[in-house]
Structure formats: structure tokens, C-alpha cells
Computed example of a mutant assay.
Amino acid sequence: MAKLTIRTLHKTLAPIVLLPLFTTVFTGVSYRLAKDWFGLTRDQVHILMVIHEGEYLGKTFESFYVLLNGLGLLWMLITGLTMLINHWRKQWRMRAKSLES
């Protein structure tokens, strides 16, 4: 039952967490590559950092955006790893049973 609950919560939260995480990754990588590979200045790519850090939400919500983005990432990693470990355990038990036979 616990596996089903973790899987359900992971599946439910994934679409909500996807867009902010994707935006953060995309803007962070774009910022770095634009500066390093294309020689753009900080001022030219500043808009990417504004989006990356959630500054467009204003001072009040910027910190919440960063906090929720981080918590969302941790949640997805922890629940994903939990499901993966449970899967590995199940496979290990099945192999152990087949070797006993």
C-alpha cells in the first residue's frame, strides 16, 4: 500500500513540478552557454537570470518560488529513488526465489 501511495503522490506532483524545474534548468543552462560559448555579456543575458531566479514574481514571492522549486525537486528525487529501490528489491526477491527452485 505504501508503494502505491508514493507512486500516486509522485505521479500527481510531477506535472506541477515539471514546468518550474524545466524553466530553471533551461534558463540556467542558456545563461551559462550564452556567456561562455557566444560571448554575450551579463547585461545581455540578464533576463535569463530574472526568469531563472523567479525575480519576475516580485520580492515577496521570489523566495517562495525558489523554496518550492527546491522542495519539489527533492520530493521528486526522494520518491523516485524510493520507487526505484522498491523495484530493485522486488527483482532481487524474484531472482532469489527462482534460484531456490
Results as ranks from 00 to 15, higher is better:
Asp36Arg: 14
Asn86Gly: 14
His87Ile: 00
Ser101Gln: 13
Phe61Ser: 03
Gly39Arg: 07
Thr27Val: 08
Arg93Gln: 10
Leu21Val: 13
Leu81His: 03
Ile16Thr: 10
Ser98Tyr: 14
Val66Leu: 12
Leu21Lys: 05
Arg95Phe: 08
Thr24Gly: 07
Ser98Phe: 13
Leu73Gly: 09
Lys11Val: 04
Ala96Thr: 11
Leu71Cys: 05
Thr23Ser: 13
Met1Gln: 07
Val45Phe: 06
Phe22Ile: 14
Ala96His: 10
Trp88Thr: 13
Phe22Ser: 15
Thr60Leu: 12
Arg89Gly: 03
Ile85Asp: 02
Lys97His: 11
His87Met: 01
Thr24Leu: 10
Lys11Met: 05
Gly72His: 03
Leu18Asn: 14
Ser101Ile: 12
Thr27Arg: 09
Tyr65Ser: 00
Phe26Leu: 13
Met76Arg: 01
His46Tyr: 15
Val66Met: 08
Ser101Pro: 03
Arg93Leu: 13
Asn86Ser: 09
Tyr65Gln: 00
Val50Met: 06
Gly28Thr: 13
Tyr31Thr: 02
Leu84Gln: 05
Thr8Ile: 10
Ala14Pro: 00
Gly80Leu: 01
Leu99Tyr: 13
Glu62Asn: 04
Trp37Ile: 08
Ala2Thr: 04
Asp43Tyr: 12
Thr8His: 10
Leu67Ala: 05
Lys11His: 04
Met76Cys: 08
Ala96Tyr: 11
Phe26Val: 12
Gly70Asp: 10
Tyr65Trp: 10
His87Asn: 02
Arg93Met: 10
Thr41Ile: 10
Lys11Thr: 11
Trp75Ile: 03
Ile47Met: 10
Asn69Val: 04
Gly39Glu: 06
Met94His: 15
Thr23Phe: 04
Gln44Lys: 05
Leu67His: 00
His10Asn: 12
Leu4Asn: 09
Leu99Ala: 15
Leu9Arg: 09
Leu9Ala: 09
Ile78Tyr: 01
Leu21Thr: 14
Leu73His: 01
Lys90Ile: 05
Gly28Trp: 13
Leu9Cys: 13
Ile85Tyr: 04
Ile16Lys: 06
